[in-house]
Write a protein that binds this DNA or RNA. Structure first.
Lengths: 149, 149
DNA sequence: AGCTCATTGTTACCTATACTCACAATGAAC
DNA sequence: GTTCATTGTGAGTATAGGTAACAATGAGCT
């Protein structure tokens, strides 16, 4: 491989890998035929991390996305009965997003799809390598110094 | 960090890192104010790898994208005078894509932007760690067994 | 009380990327 | 020369995200 631009390579690698991950996840998702787009799936998963229903703004922050984007995602999920918008009694500006039973069921299937997709993608790496990769990625995501391993 | 879904974590990490890379690259690009979108930038860079002007289909394959997508990208670049569509004398079906002088100049600035962006992103990693990361990513992209390091 | 300002979600619109399908022009094979 | 494959593109769609303006609400100050 010719690498005349070694320092710009990371972005290209990430792009290609992200695309591969997308393809594989899409395939695993379609096998189960849940009516959920990748971004909606991410919102569902994020939703599961909260002990109590979060606000739209909370989701936007967690997803690193503008609040307006969350509206669209919740619209789609609500139309399919996966989540429910509930008013906050304490503050009438906020709407809290709750998982429905259907949403919870979807989430379980989603996890299965993700797990098998991840297994396929990570197959070429040993357990140790996976850990190293995870640490390196986390370091870059956070942008601070790496824990020297 | 709570990781109830360790096997699905990679996709999330990749997504976040890719987004961070996008943000940083965008910032570095905007400082120079080239009129080029990220995908167009990628096409320009890819173009530079060919010793002689490639066909649309070649670019599509190299970019891992459907040929129709290349049409749109080249349209944009051609409108801005960065590339030129040239007929192939030997086969009138194919159009070859050539870099213009302006495109070449843009490419140079692009490289600078990418280099400084990459420097910012990779700053927390040592040289050795960068190499390890590169190998791991390549392994996952190709999908075959990792070279044991 | 009332006035001002910040927060919250949303309406309306725009951009970027990439996809499918259909098709016209061309070349290749028999 | 009829048939079939290749090549690029028009038309339309989906997904993901962003900006700007705004209405409803809450909070703080006087």
């Amino acid at each position: 491989m010719t690498t005349p631009d070694p320092d710009g390579l990371l972005a290209e690698q990430l792009l290609r890998l992200t695309r591969r991950v997308h393809r594989i996840q899409k395939r695993h998702l379609e096998e189960r035929d849940l009516g959920v787009t990748p971004a909606q799936s991410r919102l569902l998963r994020t939703l599961a991390h909260y002990p109590s229903p979060p606000r739209m703004a909370d989701l936007a922050e967690r997803l690193e996305v503008v609040p307006r984007a969350v509206t669209t995602l919740v619209d789609g999920l609500e139309a399919n009965g996966k989540v429910r918008r509930a008013p906050d009694p304490a503050n009438r500006r906020v709407t809290r997003i709750e998982l429905t039973d259907d949403g919870r069921a979807t989430l379980l299937e989603l996890r299965g799809a993700r797990r098998s997709a991840a297994e396929e993608i990570l197959a070429p790496l040993t357990e140790k390598e996976r850990q190293v990769l995870g640490v390196l990625l986390d370091t870059l995501i956070d942008g601070d110094a790496a824990p020297r391993c």
